[in-house]
Nucleic acid binder design. Structure first.
Lengths: 106, 106
DNA sequence: TAAATTGTTAAACAATTATTAAAACGACAG
DNA sequence: CTGTCGTTTTAATAATTGTTTAACAATTTA
């Protein structure tokens, strides 16, 4: 994963509403959630929500899937994991005892 | 870890220079690296570097330690791990097979 | 004490980002 | 078709962020 992609992903998540969106979608899993439902759940206007979806999509953190009139968004774990890996690359010069860079499995 | 702390940490890392600083310090481990050395290594002016250090420090991602004339900065793994855990909380409704939220141990 | 080194702070400007409101779009039901 | 629902786009404004320059503080060396 390239540096600028990682920065883009971090920027996308570095905003309260978008972080909340992403966390919500992470819990939903691959099934995702309809755009409107996310907006209602978080109390955000549709237009504003759409902008945030666009930002997250462009960063590759979420994926859109149309189903009839609804658009379902879901979290893309591959990009998130790539981002996490990039940040901790070669940490502590390879000594695992010094740092504990692990995330509880879900 | 609270939402606004996580957003602050993500914002701090969502910038090319600061991401590079953090990655450099992650590799250095607890010993850290002198401010000037980091600045030189990344080709950033001292004043600009100082601002970035401040941002990262305030987010808790790095820690400063004075040693004579030099100030050594080092990465704070606890905050980073807290941030990662927050993002993946309750992912996939608890089904570990659906997503693989793990980071290679260093 | 004076000069040199290391790093921080303050102020200003340029650039980016977030939010809102209004208009427009595409999918579907009648 | 026509109307409505769900969502996106456009355009404008407000707020935040990054960089630079110059001045300042702390520590060591002469």
């Amino acid at each position: 994963m390239k540096s600028n992609q990682v920065v883009e992903a971090l920027s996308a998540l570095a905003q309260p509403t978008r972080l909340a969106i992403f966390r919500l979608l992470v819990v939903c899993g691959p099934a995702g959630m309809a755009a409107g439902q996310v907006a209602e759940k978080l109390g955000v206007s549709p237009a504003n929500m759409s902008h945030h979806f666009k930002t997250l999509s462009h960063a590759g953190l979420i994926v859109a899937r149309q189903d009839g009139r609804f658009i379902y968004y879901s979290a893309n774990f591959a990009v998130m994991n790539g981002m996490l890996a990039y940040m901790t690359e070669n940490c502590c010069e390879g000594d695992p005892d010094v740092c504990d860079v692990s995330v509880k499995k879900c």
